[in-house]
Simulated assay, not measured.
Amino acid sequence: MTFRLTLIASARSTSRLAERFDDDRPLDPGGWREVERVAPTLLPLAAAELRYCSPSARSRETGDILGFMPLAQPALRDCDMGRWRGRTLEEVMMGEPRAVDAWLADPGSAPHGGESLFAFINRVGDWMDTRPVERDGRMLAVADAGVIRAAVTYAMKAPPHCYWNVDVLPLSTTTLTGGAGKWRLCVDREAQL
C-alpha cells in the first residue's frame, strides 16, 4: 500500500453562470442538499488520519456537513485573482479583453495583479509535497475545484496550460497516491482510502 490523498470538491455556492473569481460565498440551499444527499457515500473518508479543507466558506461548510471537522489550510485557497476578485469572466472580458487573453495564454502572467497560474499550481504542489507522510497513510482535503485542478496538474507533472483541461464536478473525489514529487493519479470506482 501507499500514501493516499483524497480530494473532495466542495459543493456549489452558486450557479456556474454566476461564478465569480475568487468567490467566497457560503453554500446555497442546493449545495446543502447535494452534500446531505451524497454524505453516506463520502462518510467512509472520515477515517483519514489527516483532514484538511480550503479556507473558503463553501469548502469549510462542505467538510463540516460531512462531519470531517477539517483544518483549514491557507495553502489550499483558490488562486489569488487580484483586482478581478468578485467579478465574472464576462465582466472582466468586457473591460480588459487583452489582459484576459494574456492570462489564458501565458501561465506565468498575472495581469490582474494577483497570482499567476504557474505560481498557484506550485503553491498547491508544495503543500502536497510537505504533508507528513507515513506509508499506508490517508489524508483528505475538501477543496475548491481550482485547487483540485492545480493538484492534478502538479501530480501529473503536466504543463500548466493543462490545468484548463481538468474538469472537477461538485462533490467529486480525486485520489492521488505516492508522496513528495512522486504522485500518481488513482481512478477509483468509488471513493476509498
Rank of each mutant, 00 (worst) to 15 (best):
residue 3 F to H: 11
residue 3 F to Y: 14
residue 5 L to S: 00
residue 6 T to S: 10
residue 6 T to D: 06
residue 7 L to C: 04
residue 8 I to V: 12
residue 8 I to L: 12
residue 9 A to P: 01
residue 9 A to H: 06
residue 13 S to D: 10
residue 13 S to P: 00
residue 13 S to Y: 06
residue 13 S to I: 02
residue 14 T to C: 10
residue 15 S to E: 13
residue 17 L to G: 15
residue 17 L to R: 13
residue 17 L to N: 13
residue 18 A to C: 14
residue 18 A to W: 13
residue 19 E to H: 09
residue 24 D to T: 05
residue 24 D to Q: 01
residue 26 P to H: 04
residue 27 L to F: 03
residue 30 G to K: 00
residue 31 G to E: 04
residue 32 W to T: 11
residue 34 E to M: 13
residue 35 V to D: 01
residue 35 V to E: 00
residue 37 R to D: 09
residue 39 A to C: 04
residue 40 P to R: 02
residue 43 L to G: 08
residue 44 P to D: 05
residue 45 L to H: 00
residue 47 A to Y: 08
residue 49 E to D: 15
residue 49 E to S: 15
residue 51 R to D: 00
residue 53 C to K: 00
residue 54 S to L: 07
residue 55 P to S: 03
residue 55 P to G: 03
residue 58 R to F: 02
residue 58 R to S: 09
residue 61 E to A: 04
residue 61 E to P: 00
residue 61 E to T: 03
residue 61 E to M: 04
residue 62 T to Q: 03
residue 62 T to D: 03
residue 66 L to F: 00
residue 67 G to W: 02
residue 68 F to Y: 05
residue 70 P to A: 02
residue 72 A to W: 00
residue 74 P to N: 04
residue 74 P to D: 09
residue 75 A to F: 03
residue 81 M to K: 08
residue 82 G to P: 05
residue 87 R to Q: 15
residue 88 T to W: 08
residue 90 E to K: 15
residue 91 E to C: 06
residue 91 E to V: 10
residue 91 E to Y: 07
residue 93 M to Q: 13
residue 93 M to R: 15
residue 94 M to V: 14
residue 95 G to R: 08
residue 97 P to I: 08
residue 97 P to V: 04
residue 102 A to H: 13
residue 103 W to D: 06
residue 103 W to H: 01
residue 107 P to C: 07
residue 107 P to W: 01
residue 110 A to Q: 08
residue 110 A to M: 08
residue 110 A to N: 10
residue 110 A to C: 10
residue 112 H to V: 12
residue 112 H to M: 14
residue 112 H to G: 07
residue 113 G to A: 12
residue 114 G to A: 09
residue 119 A to I: 07
residue 119 A to E: 14
residue 119 A to C: 11
residue 120 F to I: 03
residue 120 F to H: 03
residue 122 N to F: 10
residue 122 N to W: 06
residue 123 R to Q: 05
residue 124 V to A: 01
residue 124 V to N: 00
residue 127 W to E: 11
residue 132 P to N: 10
residue 133 V to F: 02
residue 134 E to F: 11
residue 134 E to D: 15
residue 135 R to I: 12
residue 138 R to D: 13
residue 138 R to I: 10
residue 139 M to W: 03
residue 140 L to T: 08
residue 140 L to R: 04
residue 142 V to E: 01
residue 142 V to Q: 01
residue 145 A to E: 11
residue 146 G to C: 11
residue 150 A to E: 04
residue 150 A to V: 07
residue 151 A to I: 01
residue 154 Y to N: 01
residue 157 K to W: 06
residue 157 K to R: 14
residue 160 P to H: 06
residue 161 H to D: 15
residue 162 C to A: 13
residue 164 W to A: 09
residue 167 D to A: 15
residue 168 V to Q: 05
residue 168 V to E: 09
residue 169 L to T: 12
residue 169 L to D: 12
residue 170 P to R: 04
residue 171 L to Y: 00
residue 172 S to G: 11
residue 172 S to K: 02
residue 173 T to L: 04
residue 173 T to P: 07
residue 175 T to K: 10
residue 177 T to M: 11
residue 178 G to T: 05
residue 180 A to N: 10
residue 181 G to E: 06
residue 181 G to L: 08
residue 186 C to I: 07
residue 187 V to W: 10
residue 188 D to M: 14
residue 190 E to M: 08
residue 191 A to Y: 03
residue 192 Q to E: 15
residue 192 Q to W: 10
